[in-house]
Design a binder for these strands. Structure first.
Lengths: 343, 343
DNA sequence: TTGTACGCGTTATCAT
DNA sequence: ATGATAACGCGTACAA
């Protein structure tokens, strides 16, 4: 391996000067700079990133924490994929690298381990849930002064750096859309309330229903786990209430598609016999038949903003702060939420 | 930050002894070991991973190289997601971390940069294509003695460490399946031949057709780019040949679904008017309507095996070698390839 | 079984 | 504008 020392010798300068050249520090004679660069090129010298990290006491890595999800190949979810892409883009712009960390079930309690080993300067945490353990871990992280940013999850009563989407407004708009298409009897297939965005969507749903002067039957508030299967299974429960259902808002696309599949088996076709709108605007929405109306959530941008914010904090030596960024969502109308033909 | 030195002082031993305890090296008195661990615990000492990397001259990181794909949020593809999950699982078992590297277009020529900075000990390279530049880059990598492993891509005439799936056999089985369902006029929607697996699939297709004594009309050999859109557009070309088509084998699920959508608009329903089988057995295959028959490719296992192999090489100090692993594929029958009703 | 001492390749501080 | 040099935290050969 070519080291700074060899470059210094060849260029006839000190090691310190070589470092200055490569770090663009201090005033220096253009001629020496040139000599150094020439020598470096000739020897094919490249600074050792590990040694730099060691000396700077900064790894140059952004940790990306992915939750443990049993029986699910995690990255398969559109949700994570998009966020990761956004982080990746931002990270590269700042000269950082991204270190992926897939949590094991028992590690969920100890985010600190990531920082202890000094392999990351900051973290973006994806897919956190609102549980007592999680709250405690995050508070500990914060108390220890470790910079991190949550994506798409907030903790009521706690203030972290976080990037979210406006799920309340998104859901409100989704339900408004269904209402404008002429539907009154609207069901809601939500995900676990352990995710703050599920809570937010519920709020948006109620808001839209209330404003329209529509009642919400408890039987029409269903819960799945964001999987296609859970949507498929919800079809059965919904079918029992079919007298009272004209349209469904599902908290993600996969559940919406499962639901459509389940109801299709009973003869109900989305976009003909009832309306559906999903959430995420994932690829699956375009692939399904009928194509699925959905709420676009800017996951890519959310990932990018999370990385930008938390790394800006690190680079400027700020203490971890409590910024909350909330990005807008948007209704995307496709075939599954066509106008109610009976009106 | 708590260092080894402080632990040594508190435990009343030398720094070397602390290292030995933490690395489980050499014989040592149980009592000293205990004293050290006790002191470490009391001080909440954790070895600095960067310093370890520095001293060991190993980063403990496996680089994962993702290709540049314009206008595509890379991770969204099922393909990459699964492979990444497999790598992640293996990496954790070996105590490694994974460093993601998204290539920019102009970086495709210089994989060496990743190793130069010493941030990775080895790489898994995804989505490589067979171009002269790529060949040259990879040969350079190999010449420099950098360990790496290709996934799902081989280079005819060159021998690298690589993990692949048996796409020839998979395609052969796919076409055989269509034939067994009673279809004779079979079209093939392939992807770019810049990917070795496209080449392999073409070979499998021809093999099955030849064995069945069936002709292959050049008009029925279509090429897309693995996107849904390209499948949708292929529908137009296929429609012109509808007299000669009963079934289609598509080189991935997304194209297959786009194709089904395009033909549906012309009144041809998959599983009723014609048969389709895709490839990848991605989530989309289950989401589509009708559900899409497909070739299961063990991407997860491929990623895991790639990481296992290349890291085993690193850990055992072997020079990069030329192992080729090929995993089996499997036909998954769903609704889109039902028996030909006209037979 | 344990301690001493050096080296790893940089950054950064202090001289000059 | 440049050089000398002390850290940085750990691994490890060698000595005891």
């Amino acid at each position: 391996m070519v080291t700074r020392k060899e470059v210094a010798e060849l260029a006839g300068v000190s090691e310190a000067t070589v470092s200055r050249v490569f770090n663009g520090l201090g005033p220096m004679k253009p001629s020496t700079k040139e000599r150094v660069l020439e020598a470096a090129k000739q020897l094919n010298y490249h600074p050792n990133a590990i040694a730099q990290s060691f000396a700077r006491r900064r790894s140059g890595n952004l940790g990306v924490v992915l939750p443990y999800m049993p029986k699910v190949h995690l990255f398969s979810a559109y949700y994570f994929s998009e966020i990761l892409s956004g982080i990746g883009e931002q990270v590269r712009e700042l000269g950082y690298d991204m270190l992926l960390s897939l949590l094991k079930p028992d590690e969920s309690l100890d985010y600190s381990a990531l920082y202890r080993s000094q392999k990351v300067d900051a973290c973006v945490i994806l897919g956190a849930r609102d549980t007592p353990e999680q709250r405690q871990s995050l508070m500990k992280l914060q108390a220890e002064g470790h910079p991190f940013c949550l994506v798409n999850q907030r903790f009521e009563g706690l203030s972290f750096r976080e990037v979210d989407a406006d799920h309340i407004e998104g859901s409100y708009q989704a339900v408004r859309h269904l209402q404008e298409e002429g539907y009154r009897k609207i069901a809601f297939l939500n995900g676990s309330l352990g995710y703050s965005n599920s809570v937010d969507r519920l709020e948006g749903f109620h808001k839209a229903m209330k404003e329209a002067g529509l009642d919400v039957m408890p039987e029409l508030l269903l819960e799945g786990n964001y999987s296609r299967k859970s949507g498929y299974e919800a079809a059965e429960r919904l079918w029992e209430q079919r007298e009272h259902v004209e349209a469904v808002f599902a908290a993600n696309d996969r559940m919406a598609i499962g639901l459509m599949q389940g109801l299709r088996e009973r003869g109900w076709i989305a976009g003909r016999d009832f309306a559906v709108i999903g959430c995420d605007d994932s690829d699956a929405a375009k692939l399904s038949d009928p194509s699925l109306s959905s709420i676009n959530v800017p996951f890519y941008e959310m990932g990018k903003e999370a990385a930008r914010g938390v790394l800006a904090g690190v680079l400027q030596g700020e203490a971890a702060n409590h910024t909350r960024v909330r990005l807008p969502t948007q209704v995307v109308v496709r075939q599954s939420s066509k106008r109610n033909p009976s009106k």
